[in-house]
Amino acid sequence: MKKFLFFLILLFVIYLIGINTVPQYVESQRNPVKLAAPYTVSPEAQSLYDRLDFIADLHCDALLWGRNLNKREDRGHVDFPRMREANVALEMFTIVSKSPAGQNMQSNSEDAFDNITPLTIAKGESPWNWFSLINRTLSQSEALADFVENEGDKAIFIKKKSDLEKLIDARKSDNQVIGAMLGIEGGHALEASLENLEKVYAAGVRMIGPTHFFDNEFGGSAHGENGAGLSDFGKSAVQKMNELGIFIDLAHASPAIVEDVLNLTTKPVMVSHTGVRAVLDSQRNLSDAQIQKIAANGGIIGIAFFDMAVGEPELPNIIASIKHVRDLVGIQYVALGSDYDGSVAVPFDITGLPLIVEGLMKAGFSEAEIRAVMGENVKDFFLKNLN
């Protein structure tokens, strides 16, 4: 009996050590930064950056890793202190609930081993989250709400138009006030339940991508096996999302789903983090025809920062991708969609955003266009379309 008790205590000690070391190690390996801070730009670029009223990013997976977003960290790409350091007004925090082993851009099976399960256990989350996608999703939603609450009046959880208006007004006198929105990467998190769709809406979710890296109950992924369009459940969910006021995110969706959503939705769509095929010909990127249809829908396109979306070297290709969308459909449809903390290597963390401004200046963008890309387009989109 004593040996058994000792064995249990030893297992518990190992587990405690694991939850305080394993997630941090995994995150540091999965979210590297190619160029470490601090970042320097020309005085002209820094001056323009400092004049920006509203900077926004449409995609960040920081909630996945269990980091305290109230604390500045040296690992990862985004936290609240670094948002303030970069004068970022609004970040869309997205929930990842499942990720296939061997994840790649070409083909992934929905039956592949799930990478998020061991991470969930290693983070010391409740056993109720270990094998439930909806519980993991609601847990990350609660985490964001707690992080925002810990900031007092210095952070606002953006769920409706009046919240955004409050953020805009607060930042006129105090640019330390930041906003956080909540999205879901992959509709598998709903476990094929419209009731769960209502639950995540109540938890603050305002954006959902139908598919992530594998096919699910919504239909096909751009990186899946069947290439299918929306299923009957997917069509019902899209209609319900329109009714509730949840934006549909077409990043990672199969071309057939992109087409089906644009034919079915009554609301403007989002592509929270993507590249364009004219810059990098990848199946995860948007064609010119898709860009034109999204613009005609009144949607918005966030350009990602990592090599598998824009190619290498990243910075000039980010600028080229932004320029391509501008030249094709207009500056009002393009925004930043970094995919920070999304198991990707990025050229700089969120404090390096002045490098984008410098790149846009060198490419001949006007100050008004730079303001639009860096956040005004996102602000205007949500002011127009949030309930």
Score class of each variant (00 low, 15 high):
Met308Lys: 15
Arg284Phe: 02
Lys123Ala: 10
Gly298Gln: 07
Gly187Ile: 01
Tyr15Ser: 05
Arg84Asn: 02
Val271Pro: 03
Gly352Pro: 15
Val205Gln: 13
Glu149Gln: 15
Glu151Arg: 14
Phe93Glu: 13
Phe113Ile: 12
Met83Val: 11
Asn108Ala: 15
Ile356Arg: 08
Asn385Ser: 08
Asp174His: 01
Val238Gln: 08
Thr40His: 09
Ser162Val: 09
Asn196Ser: 07
Glu27Phe: 05
Ile370Thr: 01
Ala62Lys: 01
Gly102Thr: 07
Ile322Cys: 08
Leu182Asn: 06
Leu230Val: 08
Phe7Gln: 12
Pro268Tyr: 05
Leu262Gln: 11
Thr266Ser: 03
Lys160Ile: 04
Ile301Phe: 00
Pro38Glu: 10
Lys240Trp: 11
Asn216Thr: 06
Leu383Gln: 08
Leu315Asn: 09
Lys384Tyr: 10
Glu149Met: 14
Lys235Ala: 08
Tyr49Val: 03
Gly76Asp: 05
Leu144Met: 04
Gly220Asn: 13
Ala304Val: 06
Ser236Cys: 04
Ser132Val: 13
Gln283Cys: 15
Gly76Tyr: 15
Val96Ala: 03
Ser338Thr: 14
Lys154Tyr: 02
Asn104His: 11
Leu190Trp: 08
Gly187His: 00
Ser231Leu: 01
Glu149Ile: 07
Thr120Ile: 11
Gly275Tyr: 04
Val96Glu: 11
Phe113Ala: 15
Ile17Val: 11
Ile55Pro: 11
Leu167Asp: 07
Lys166Asp: 12
Ser231Ile: 02
Val334Glu: 09
Asp163Phe: 11
Ser126Leu: 12
Glu259Gln: 04
His273Pro: 14
Arg82Ala: 12
Asp232His: 15
Gly311Arg: 01
Ser236Asp: 12
Phe233Ser: 14
Ile19Pro: 03
Val357Glu: 05
Asn129His: 11
Ser28Phe: 08
Glu259Thr: 09
Arg277Thr: 14
Pro43Cys: 00
Val96Tyr: 03
Asp260Ser: 01
Leu119Phe: 01
Arg371Met: 09
Asp215Gln: 03
Leu264Arg: 00
Arg277Asn: 14
Phe4Pro: 07
Asn385Met: 01
Leu230Ser: 02
Asn297Gln: 00
Leu353Arg: 07
Ile301Val: 13
Glu149Val: 04
Gly330Met: 05
Gly375Phe: 06
Ile370Met: 00
Thr274Ile: 13
Glu225Thr: 10
Met270Lys: 04
Ser366Pro: 10
Asn377Asp: 09
Pro127Asp: 06
Gly375Thr: 09
Ile370Arg: 00
Ile301Glu: 01
Ser343Val: 14
Gly229Cys: 06
Pro347Ser: 00
Gly220Glu: 04
Asn387Met: 04
Ile134Pro: 07
Pro313Ile: 05
Glu259Asn: 14
